[in-house]
Simulated scan of single mutants.
Amino acid sequence: MKKLFAEFFGTYWLVFGGCGSALFAAGIPELGIGFTGVSLAFGLTVLTMAYAVGHISGGHFNPAVSFGLWAGGRFDIKDLIPYVIAQCSGAITAAATLFFIASGKAGFAIDNTKAGAFASNGYGSFSPDGFSMASAFTVEFVLTMFFLLIILGATDKLANGKFAGVAIGLALTLIHLISIPITNTSVNPARSTSQALFTQGEPLLQLWLFWLAPILGAIVAGIIYKNLLQKNDSE
């Protein structure tokens, strides 16, 4: 249960910090943090929670990461579904907190006809810069694949584990710098689900892509690392 609570709180912090920065701080006139600030916020949430609770649960905070670590032989399949449930629960609870806070401002309403409403992900007319479904799928697949390669490499028994959290947090920052204009950046099905549930409409109908592409990318990364990159004891 401690592992599941760690995943719950870690994913809560990721969504609260990352999506919260997008909702409340990105567009403040003259003082807004913009895409760069939001990218950094997502990276910092993972970095800080990796050191806070990573030693308890492994610090996944993302269903795609759990699938990727399983494919790479680093995670027991019996823990997969409990982890995903804990991650999604943490993300949805964080989104509910963000919705409650946002509701405290006069005139607040989620316009689910606009791209990025309530920090949701999307493609086509719901992509921040109008990218197609194929572009969205490709970027989510590729970026999640490399994210898992970085995670698997940084946490390898031969790597310097003390700096794993830094590498992973910076990787997530870079991922957001690349893909916010394309999909508003997911690479995390739990993060996408939490925002889509409150946004409803087309972002909820497009949610399938933000489960399928990241999980496939993560599984491919796990297979690649296990078979092509990971050193065996005999090597």
Score class of each variant (00 low, 15 high):
residue 119 A to N: 09
residue 60 H to C: 06
residue 131 F to W: 13
residue 221 A to Q: 06
residue 47 L to V: 03
residue 211 W to R: 10
residue 167 A to F: 12
residue 116 G to A: 11
residue 144 T to N: 06
residue 106 A to S: 13
residue 68 G to M: 07
residue 170 L to K: 11
residue 200 Q to P: 04
residue 201 G to K: 06
residue 22 A to R: 01
residue 168 I to C: 08
residue 12 Y to G: 06
residue 56 I to V: 15
residue 234 S to E: 15
residue 212 L to K: 14
residue 63 P to H: 02
residue 182 I to M: 10
residue 41 A to G: 03
residue 113 T to Y: 05
residue 193 T to S: 12
residue 53 V to K: 01
residue 12 Y to N: 04
residue 208 W to K: 06
residue 127 S to M: 06
residue 221 A to R: 00
residue 155 T to K: 13
residue 137 F to E: 11
residue 185 T to M: 07
residue 204 L to F: 12
residue 197 L to A: 11
residue 19 C to H: 00
residue 79 D to Y: 00
residue 122 G to R: 03
residue 220 V to F: 13
residue 25 A to W: 01
residue 192 S to M: 13
residue 227 N to P: 02
residue 59 G to F: 02
residue 187 V to Y: 01
residue 73 G to W: 03
residue 82 P to V: 10
residue 127 S to P: 09
residue 16 F to R: 02
residue 180 I to Q: 08
residue 28 I to D: 03
residue 75 F to W: 14
residue 110 I to Q: 04
residue 228 L to T: 08
residue 11 T to I: 06
residue 38 V to W: 00
residue 213 A to F: 01
residue 133 M to V: 14
residue 190 A to P: 04
residue 118 F to Y: 07
residue 117 A to W: 01
residue 121 N to V: 09
residue 75 F to T: 10
residue 77 I to S: 14
residue 60 H to N: 09
residue 133 M to Q: 08
residue 92 I to R: 05
residue 1 M to A: 12
residue 34 G to I: 09
residue 61 F to W: 10
residue 185 T to C: 11
residue 78 K to G: 14
residue 42 F to N: 00
residue 65 V to Q: 02
residue 127 S to L: 05
residue 10 G to A: 10
residue 49 M to K: 00
residue 34 G to H: 07
residue 49 M to S: 07
residue 28 I to K: 08
residue 27 G to D: 13
residue 64 A to H: 05
residue 227 N to I: 00
residue 213 A to K: 01
residue 88 C to I: 14
residue 215 I to D: 01
residue 38 V to Q: 00
residue 80 L to A: 07
residue 188 N to M: 08
residue 191 R to Q: 11
residue 61 F to S: 05
residue 135 S to Q: 14
residue 22 A to L: 05
residue 140 E to S: 05
residue 164 A to P: 01
residue 31 L to T: 15
residue 149 L to H: 14
residue 34 G to Y: 02
residue 95 A to W: 00
residue 212 L to T: 15
residue 234 S to K: 11
residue 231 K to Y: 15
residue 204 L to E: 11
residue 43 G to K: 02
residue 111 D to P: 10
residue 82 P to L: 11
